[in-house]
Simulated assay, not measured.
Amino acid sequence: METSQNPNLNHLLAALPTAEFEHIAPQLELVAMPLGDVLCESGGQLQHVYFPTTAIVSLHYVMENGASSEIAGVGNEGVLGISLFMGGNTTPSRAIVQTGGYGYRLKARVLMEEFNRAGPMMHLMLRYTQALITQISQTAVCNRHHSVEQQLCRWLLLTLDRLPSNELTMTQELIASMLGVRREGITETAGNLQRTGLISYRRGHITVLDRSGLESHTCECYNVVKKEFHRLLCDGRNRQDPSASHD
């Protein structure tokens, strides 16, 4: 395990007031979240909720024929497991680790006990859920109305926001699966972005060379999602350690 990890790297845990955080801290378990690990299948019920720190989890909707696309991502800004406290217990989406790393898991029972106290944990989780709904809604609109280039730029930027560097480990096949488009479309688009000097792509590694240029090529969807997360969650980060990362 990485000894440098701490719960404050997750923005939701960092936003909890000291008393509420100390109440659950002994129950938080640091876990490795390797690339490709399936945390929950469609229709499955989570026994734990996950607060990623350096990992990113992709929520996929899987069709009857096996095709799938990403409906949202969960990184250091959020939590996997909103179905538990929203009352549905299960969801039709699959949760799979998109970027390997670490996170903290908490038994579902412990989260629900804290949530049902109707205190800061409940209010924070509900605000996060609203932000996540915005991300899901905006993804649906983006996939319907915007070009593959705009979708790819949006996805790259949202992923970068959850990482400590400008490098991503991701194949074109996986990106195509995330966006629900043909691999050829991703190959052509990534090639165009590389030729214009915005990214460098080599053997499954993507390096963003010009973030501002990438932002100029994306659609409004990126800023809509980013601003909503900021509006709903940023003012709560009152317990974050100075060593923790910021947006």
Results as ranks from 00 to 15, higher is better:
residue 47 Q to M: 09
residue 41 E to F: 05
residue 79 V to T: 08
residue 57 V to T: 11
residue 165 S to W: 02
residue 182 R to N: 13
residue 230 H to W: 02
residue 175 I to F: 07
residue 241 D to E: 12
residue 150 Q to I: 02
residue 167 E to N: 11
residue 55 A to T: 04
residue 47 Q to P: 00
residue 243 S to P: 00
residue 151 Q to S: 06
residue 165 S to T: 15
residue 166 N to W: 04
residue 168 L to H: 07
residue 56 I to F: 01
residue 8 N to K: 09
residue 167 E to Q: 14
residue 138 Q to G: 00
residue 76 N to S: 15
residue 142 C to K: 11
residue 32 A to C: 06
residue 73 G to Y: 01
residue 67 A to L: 09
residue 225 V to T: 13
residue 100 G to P: 05
residue 226 K to L: 09
residue 95 A to N: 08
residue 198 L to A: 08
residue 191 G to F: 05
residue 102 Y to K: 07
residue 145 H to G: 00
residue 242 P to I: 11
residue 14 A to D: 07
residue 123 H to D: 12
residue 165 S to G: 08
residue 76 N to M: 09
residue 239 R to W: 06
residue 60 H to P: 00
residue 11 H to R: 14
residue 41 E to R: 13
residue 24 I to P: 05
residue 179 L to W: 06
residue 210 D to R: 13
residue 59 L to D: 01
residue 200 S to N: 13
residue 98 Q to C: 05
residue 133 I to N: 12
residue 33 M to N: 01
residue 108 A to R: 11
residue 1 M to D: 10
residue 168 L to R: 09
residue 138 Q to H: 02
residue 57 V to D: 01
residue 148 V to R: 04
residue 163 L to H: 10
residue 121 M to S: 04
residue 143 N to Q: 14
residue 89 N to Q: 14
residue 59 L to Y: 04
residue 211 R to K: 14
residue 57 V to C: 11
residue 185 G to A: 15
residue 135 Q to A: 13
residue 78 G to R: 03
residue 97 V to A: 04
residue 179 L to Q: 07
residue 166 N to Q: 12
residue 166 N to F: 06
residue 202 R to F: 09
